[in-house]
Nucleic acid binder design. Structure first.
Lengths: 206, 206
DNA sequence: AATTTTCTGGCACGACCGTGCCAGAAAACA
DNA sequence: TGTTTTCTGGCACGGTCGTGCCAGAAAATT
């Protein structure tokens, strides 16, 4: 075999180019030509690693969600190691902040993800991953709230399932709006809203 | 002058075709040809009423938000006429439900709006309207919460501005997720989450 | 050194796009 | 009736798209 080249790494590099193009020009700008150009490759090379255009988009979407999940799960693991109550609250809050576009990098990621998810409604290939991520998000919410309930931090009488849906929706709403009109949802406000919400779930202590 | 034809009405009819096409094929499917075909017109006719393609999209987006605002403001007026506390709560909740995709029609509307808003990030012509609607939404939230505060229904110690942001984000998040994966957010659940949230704002009574 | 396989780069085709342009139909006005 | 203006329908252009196809470069294998 020729040309020592790690195929998977190359695919990831191309995905990176997809993110850049989508961030700048939207998903409809992510043509093979534009992506290849962004990646500094010839269009033929890109096509060697991806069967067709749809496959490229699916891979990029999966890659984006994979990275995101990786970051979140790191927090979840740290959460499992916590014994101290105060520390639990801080780690949980840090984990939930991971869902918010608090800096330019994350805002771009969120914008790109938003583009994929919107497109997923009309493009069947993209739908499964959109659904998986939403389900995963809800599950993470359930896990953290259930954990809080076990340690007695959660207010009595709360429906954990319902609160998971509410929390997931709140985070998604904040993200979508912050991507749309960042001026109206600066990082500070995003953090405050999240903290306020968590306070209502834990009536004071944690 | 020739051809008795109400230009504005024709423009609205074309906008209707835009909604149908975007609902079915996404915004990138809303080409002049597809829209004209959907409206039963020749492409030349559509172009007579809209300077260019961008103008068509801007008009359609404005028309969609205009209709939505009209519906919401009707509720707001009814809210102003309310004297009874119980009635106020019901009308307010009905108004807030207007933001949720509770039936197929509204789900389609929300999906189309979502497509426009996502595109607005990369298309400058669409940005102003996206921002206006978000600001308007937040203002409506502030108005209804401020009203509740005046009548003593709101829990003490709540920051109305902050709660407006939180409520608006929650509604947006529920909507976006319901458009993405309707199975995970059936109308019943949407209503329950909203009601639960309002309960936490009014500690019991209203 | 010869062969095989992976990889790169690019040409060409058909499809769709927005738009400039124009000819003719249709109705109001002279 | 003739003129004018609005409206309709369509042709043709340049551009971008995904994709089929292929030739040659490059490296591992024989």
């Amino acid at each position: 075999m020729p040309k020592i080249v790690d195929a998977e790494e190359r695919r990831r590099a191309v995905a990176e180019a997809v993110f850049a193009v989508v961030g700048r020009r939207g998903l409809e700008g992510a043509s093979l030509r534009n992506v290849a150009n962004e990646a500094g490759l010839a269009i033929g090379s890109v096509r060697h690693y991806f069967g067709d255009h749809g496959e490229l988009l699916v891979f990029a979407m999966k890659e984006l969600s994979r990275r995101f999940e990786h970051r979140v799960l790191a927090h979840v693991e740290r959460l499992a190691e916590c014994r101290d109550g105060e520390e639990r609250r801080e780690v949980a809050e840090a984990m939930l902040q991971e869902f918010l576009p608090l800096d330019a990098t994350r805002r771009e990621e969120a914008a790109v993800w938003s583009a994929f998810v919107t497109a997923a409604r009309t493009r069947p290939e993209l739908r499964p991953r959109a659904r998986e991520v939403l389900e995963g998000t809800r599950e993470v919410m359930t896990r953290v709230l259930e954990g809080a309930r076990r340690t007695g931090a959660l207010r009595k009488g709360l429906d954990v399932e319902l609160e998971s849906v509410r929390l997931a929706a709140l985070l998604d709403g904040l993200t979508v709006q912050a991507v749309q009109v960042p001026e109206l949802l600066p990082p500070r406000l995003l953090r405050t809203v999240l903290r306020t919400h968590l306070d209502t779930l834990t009536d004071g202590g944690w």
